[in-house]
Computed example of a mutant assay.
Amino acid sequence: MVAITLILLTLVYFEFSFIWLSLIILIAIRVFFLRQRKLLLLWIVLAVIWLGWLTCWNKAQLANRLQHNEQLSDQHIIVAPDEIQVDGDLVKFKGRWQEKNQRIQGYYRLQSLSEKSKWLHQAQTADLTVSGDFSSVSGPTNENQFDYQRYLGSQRIVNQVFVKKMVLKSHINSTTLTDLIAWLHELRWQLLKQLDQLDNPLKSYGQLLLLGYYNADYDQQIQQINQLGLLYLFSLSGMHVFYLLRVIRWLFTYLKITRETYEWFCLLLLPIYAVLGGLSASLLRAVLMSWLIIFFQRLKLRLSGVTAECLVLIVNLAYSPLLLFSLGFQLS
Rank of each mutant, 00 (worst) to 15 (best):
K203F: 12
L228T: 01
L236P: 00
D217Y: 12
K203N: 14
V247R: 09
L236W: 00
L268C: 13
Q227R: 07
Q223M: 12
C266F: 10
L208R: 04
G238M: 07
Y273M: 06
M239C: 05
A274Q: 01
L209S: 00
Y273P: 08
H240T: 01
L267P: 06
G212M: 06
T261G: 10
Y218W: 10
V247Q: 10
L276R: 00
L245E: 13
H240L: 00
K203C: 11
E263A: 11
Q224D: 05
I222M: 04
I225K: 03
A274T: 02
P271Y: 06
L255A: 09
G238H: 06
V247W: 11
S204H: 12
R259S: 15
K203V: 10
L230V: 03
L276W: 03
I272N: 05
I272P: 07
V247F: 12
H240M: 02
L208I: 07
E260N: 15
A216I: 09
S204D: 14
Y262W: 10
Q220R: 04
L236G: 01
F234L: 01
G229N: 07
Q221I: 01
R249H: 13
W250C: 09
Y262D: 05
D217F: 11
I248P: 05
L270D: 03
T258L: 15
L251Y: 00
N215P: 05
R259T: 14
Y205F: 08
Y213W: 05
W250K: 11
G212W: 03
F242R: 12
F252R: 06
G229E: 06
T258I: 14
G206Y: 08
N226M: 04
D217E: 10
G212R: 03
L228D: 03
W250M: 12
T258E: 15
R259M: 13
G206F: 07
L255K: 10
A274R: 00
I257R: 10
R246W: 11
L255Y: 10
L209Y: 01
L245W: 14
L270V: 05
L268F: 12
Q220G: 02
G238F: 03
G229P: 06
D219Y: 15
H240P: 01
P271L: 07
T261S: 12
N215C: 09
V247H: 08
Y232V: 10
L245M: 15
I222Q: 07
R249T: 11
Y214V: 15
M239Y: 07
Y205P: 04
Y243R: 11
I248L: 06
Y232S: 09
L228F: 04
R259L: 15
C266H: 09
P271T: 06
W264F: 14
K203Q: 14
L209R: 00
L231P: 00
L251R: 03
F265L: 09
R259E: 15
A216L: 11
N226I: 03
F265C: 08
L255P: 08
L267R: 05
L276T: 04
S235R: 01
W264K: 14
L230Q: 10
L231G: 01
R246E: 11
Y218F: 13
Q207A: 09
V241C: 02
L233E: 02
F265V: 08
L245C: 15
S204N: 13
L268Y: 09
N226K: 02
G277H: 05
I222K: 10
Q207I: 05
